[in-house]
């Protein structure tokens, strides 16, 4: 196990370095001048040039990248040109909002999709399967922007049951979580259903029936674990993506998370902020994938970590 952890850690470092390099090059290649953003719209060319000199933007790109890596090694992720503050505290102040939304979304999606998908896959009952497929198709077809606005219109404006925007208690989470959770649940339902169908057709399941084991035990003890492997993998990928922030949902519901921050940073050419967030995202992806692999290996020891 330790060997595996060490191997994955080194692999992760390589991935993160490559992502950092690509992010740095692409961000610097995009049109726009962050020095002008910092100096102000009406700054003269001389003032902009002075700002470029001070920020090091006039240096060759490889030199800027080296300076960036040196900064990273010292825990300095750079200064935001928008906030004129170090970027890490700003990102960490936004992260709880995104984490709240991501965790809530995954919980709701799992609660909705796994029972529905498993029951549909097991019973193959016409009505339940129809409902599950309809549920999945609708969720996968809907734009989250449209769904979010629709939910706000119905539940906030017309019914007045829930707040339209903002953060606060659990009532502020319901609509955003539904907006993100439903499309995710739609995909998971299909995967759970397919997983169950495939597993139930395995020979070992037939053998368990032949041994006289009850249907409930067959479904839960023997079939469910193996059927959940693709579901868990998908949950992991979705969770990692959502921890990087959902720009659309955070914008519609005015939740100041990292998704909104990324959108703002791209628009204002906040290089340091963009790079820091990409770095953190790649770290989260590799970490979550690692956890998923470990869980899958526990569920099915045949999936050796080695």
């Amino acid at each position: 196990m330790l060997y595996y952890i060490g191997k994955r850690f080194l692999q992760s470092l390589v991935v993160i370095f490559i992502v950092t390099l690509f992010a740095f090059v692409l961000v610097h290649a995009a049109p726009g001048n962050p020095a002008r953003m910092m100096a102000g719209e009406y700054a003269t060319d001389e003032q902009v040039a002075a700002m470029e000199e001070r920020m090091g933007f006039n240096k060759p790109i490889y030199e800027q990248f080296w300076m960036y890596l040196e900064g990273l090694a010292h825990g300095d992720f750079g200064m935001s040109v928008v906030y004129n503050q170090p970027v890490l505290p700003i990102i960490f102040s936004r992260l709880p909002v995104t984490v709240q939304l991501a965790v809530g979304t995954v919980l709701v999606a799992c609660l909705l999709s796994i029972p529905l998908g498993v029951i549909a896959g097991v019973t193959r009952a016409k009505f339940i399967e129809f409902f599950a497929m309809f549920f999945a198709l609708l969720g996968q077809s809907m734009s989250s922007l449209w769904l979010g606005i629709l939910l706000i219109y119905i539940f906030a404006v017309k019914l007045g049951w829930l707040p339209a925007i903002g953060t606060g208690g659990i009532e502020y989470l319901i609509l955003p979580v539904l907006t993100m959770g439903y499309p995710m649940a739609a995909t998971l339902t299909r995967v759970a259903r397919s997983g169950m169908i495939d597993t139930m057709n395995e020979d070992y399941i037939t053998a368990t029936y032949a041994k006289g084991i009850s249907n409930f035990q067959v479904y839960t003890k023997y079939a469910l674990r193996n059927a959940m492997i693709p579901v868990i993998t998908l949950i992991g990928l979705d969770l990692a993506m959502q921890l990087s922030g959902s720009v659309i949902v955070e914008s519609v519901f005015s939740r100041a998370g990292v998704g909104q921050l990324m959108n703002q940073s791209v628009t204002s050419r906040d290089y340091a902020m963009i790079q820091a967030m990409l770095l953190i995202s790649s770290f989260l992806f590799t970490f979550v994938n690692f956890i998923v692999d470990v869980i899958n290996s526990i569920i099915d020891p045949r999936l050796s970590l080695y």
Binding site: A156, V157, G160, A164, I165, E250, S251, V252, S254
Partner: peptide, 18 residues
Amino acid sequence: VRYVVDDSAGVAAHLAGS
């Protein structure tokens, strides 16, 4: 003073009394 990103959501929030 509450900050809104999307205008349609801002209007909805105003209509909803936020």
